[in-house]
Design a protein around this nucleic acid. Structure first.
Lengths: 201, 201
DNA sequence: GTCTATAAAAGGATAGAC
DNA sequence: GTCTATCCTTTTATAGAC
């Protein structure tokens, strides 16, 4: 019964790394959760780090299906999509009593001297997230000023999300996240205001 | 020669937690760096976590002397101080090849189930940082709109800093930090613009 | 591919002399 | 308060039968 063993390992590890972090998750944790034995794990992966790499690849390859599609179901407005995505993180915070951390962000700050493959995969995950937001900003067209650097703004949205989660988690209070989103909202509002054709006075 | 032993431990641990994180720093790391022996460390601290608590207390108590004063020397403009503080983080990034992480932010995301004392100390560190920025925003007075929530905006500045560092570190490129600060700058510019008395047309 | 058993090392912490 | 020696647990990883 081998078809799913590798997959089970990866998804169990995904969960555990998210819940406890990479260093605090032991191989034994993964084994006990999957009910497999070390021989099987080491048959598929040379070591613990390679499990992490597989996890990061899974996040990367699943960003649409696992993250964006659920968050954007029923939302078509491009700027609405941005805040709908942020709201999906808010929901995660709520359902975990503000224990939730963005899995990539947590790993990015936990691993101080990551293997280069690991670092590049984290960077790729961020880049794809940013790309998705940037596409929304491009789609928003004239609603934001023409000279706005849409890539930079998309990175700033990522920053608002990660910083908001960091503070909400640390204070165990979603209001910290909400206030951050409010600031970002105001920033967007002012950009949209500025993009409007000059009024006649 | 006991007067400084405790202090030496705390500062060595501060450095190591910053460089490698909490879990990746072993007691042996601290001992070898301080040239003291385990008996001394456990004389002052019940366990590793208590060293972390002392480190967080030291950050908390030293925010003015260790962080704000150096960053603000020669800067008197309140909004200038905000960006001067951000610039001091930029310098850290540059001098560490974008390896630098905010020590509190890294710990906040590394420790998924922190002891309550630890969590509260991290929250206190964030809160004091935010308070310092909030004071600048209050001092800025009429330069930003009267109805601006200065506390929320100060938290947003923290978010911009943390998010910028996270991305710069992950991509190993300070430009990610810079673009975030640019967005924040633009946000402030628009706020200041909005605060100006209505022009005559 | 999966199992059991176990090696090999690292890590946190303690005991007790000085 | 500081030193040496060491215990005990956890953790990563391997060996080899099935």
């Amino acid at each position: 019964m081998s078809p799913d063993t590798r997959r089970n390992i990866v998804f169990a590890a995904m969960d555990l790394f998210w819940l406890k972090g990479f260093n605090s998750t032991s191989i034994a944790d993964i084994l006990s959760r999957t009910q497999i034995h070390s021989g099987s794990l080491y048959h598929f992966f040379p070591g613990k780090q390679d499990v992490l790499i597989a996890v990061l690849e899974t996040y990367r390859d699943g960003i649409g299906e696992m993250l964006l599609q659920p968050a954007w179901s029923g939302v078509s407005d491009p700027i609405g999509k941005i805040f709908a995505l942020l709201n999906s993180y808010r929901t995660h915070l709520l359902t975990t009593d503000c224990t939730y951390g963005c899995p990539i962000g947590s790993l990015a700050l936990e691993l101080h001297e990551p293997d280069e493959r690991v670092r590049l995969l984290m960077a790729e995950n961020f880049a794809n997230w940013v790309k998705a937001i940037e596409a929304c900003l491009v789609e928003a067209g004239d609603r934001i000023p023409r000279d706005t650097d849409r890539h930079a703004l998309a990175e700033f949205v990522l920053t608002a999300m990660e910083g908001g989660i960091m503070q909400a988690r640390t204070h165990r209070d979603v209001a910290y996240f909400d206030r951050n989103v409010q600031c970002l909202r105001q920033y967007f509002d002012m950009l949209e205001e500025r993009a409007k054709p000059a009024r006649v006075h």
